[in-house]
């Protein structure tokens, strides 16, 4: 690791000042599970590392029935997963938080870090997208709110300008009759990176038994996590029959633009999207029915 300075500011304003002062050469440290190996292996460089875990705003974890869930950008996954409202209202996110790395990694890795590292395979991002999460970003010019699906702009790249800091994530209260799920595929059962991942959230129209609202998001199959719009549109207004799920799974592939790499070929990834989309939607259906896959 090349030498760098270290700062642990106590406020968002202080952190932003440090980031601005470093002129783009500072790196934000939350859990460090991506940043530290990247610095060690020379894949990223930093003149200054800004540890944001001592800023109270970034360590908030709160839920209320009006605004929903607020997750500080530095809150570790294990803490998110242990928060009862998360398992109850945001099961797709809960699952992701128990899948990232190992227990040891989950005790450090934050959702803010997972999002800002902007790996296409980031497990928490498709769930955040289907939960309609927004990112609250503060910079020298003030604070803005950005839908999570617009945060990642490419592998390792985000919409954050130099000097900007991701402060927290907001997840709205899901409407009644909503369930979600996240499934990923990895060669090993743990300690692995998604070859493909699919999150889905469905709100049922209880009178009709059809989908009032659907979100499907894919991970590891495009330069950024993406929504499978064609699958969403197809399912809208339809009941969750196996036949419809299968068709939606086929349509989900339209959103996938995978590459071939050491973890899998583009072709295999596209195939996994269909398998996982079907299985994820089936898990959502089971949860809506209060079936075996229901969590709460």
């Amino acid at each position: 690791m090349e030498a760098f300075a270290y700062a642990a500011p106590r406020t968002v304003a202080e952190a932003v000042e440090l980031l601005v002062g470093a002129n783009g050469s500072a790196r934000v440290l939350a859990g460090g599970t991506d940043l530290i190996p990247q610095l060690q292996e020379g894949r990223r460089r930093a003149s200054l590392v800004v540890d944001v875990k001592r800023i109270p705003d970034l360590c908030v974890l709160d839920w209320n029935p009006e605004e929903g869930l607020t997750i500080g950008a530095a809150v570790p996954c294990a803490q998110v997963a242990a928060f009862p409202r998360v398992q109850q209202h945001y099961p797709a996110l809960h699952t992701a938080c128990t899948l990232i790395g190992s227990v040891m990694v989950q005790n450090r890795a934050s959702l803010g870090g997972n999002l800002c590292n902007a790996a296409p395979s980031a497990d928490s991002v498709p769930p955040l997208i289907v939960h309609a999460a927004e990112a609250v970003i503060t910079g020298p010019g003030g604070t803005r709110r950005v839908p999570v699906e617009s945060v990642c702009t490419g592998p390792g790249q985000t919409c954050l300008a130099p000097g900007e800091l991701l402060v927290r994530l907001h997840l709205p209260v899901p409407p009644p009759h909503t369930a979600s799920a996240y499934l990923r595929f990895t060669p090993r059962n743990e300690m692995d990176i998604a070859v493909a991942g699919v999150a889905a959230a469905v709100t049922l129209d209880p009178a009709e038994g059809t989908c009032a609202h659907v979100r499907v998001a894919l991970g590891a199959v495009a330069p950024t996590p993406v929504r499978a719009i064609a699958a969403e549109e197809y399912l809208a207004g339809k009941p969750l029959t196996d036949e419809h799920l299968r068709r939606a799974a086929q349509l989900a592939v339209e959103a996938a633009k995978p590459i071939s790499d050491v973890r899998g070929s583009a072709e295999y990834r596209r195939h996994l999207v269909t398998v996982l989309t079907f299985r994820t939607l089936r898990a959502v259906r089971d949860r809506l029915a209060g079936g075996p896959a229901a969590r709460s």
Partner: peptide
């Protein structure tokens, strides 16, 4: 005997793996 290799052997894909667009995904 990785999942992808087994899947291919099962006839999951018509052609062998192509090396198109090699790069980083993870």
């Amino acid at each position: 005997m990785s999942p992808e290799r087994v899947w291919r052997a099962l006839g999951g894909a018509d052609q062998p793996a192509s090396d198109d667009q090699a790069g980083e995904t993870g």
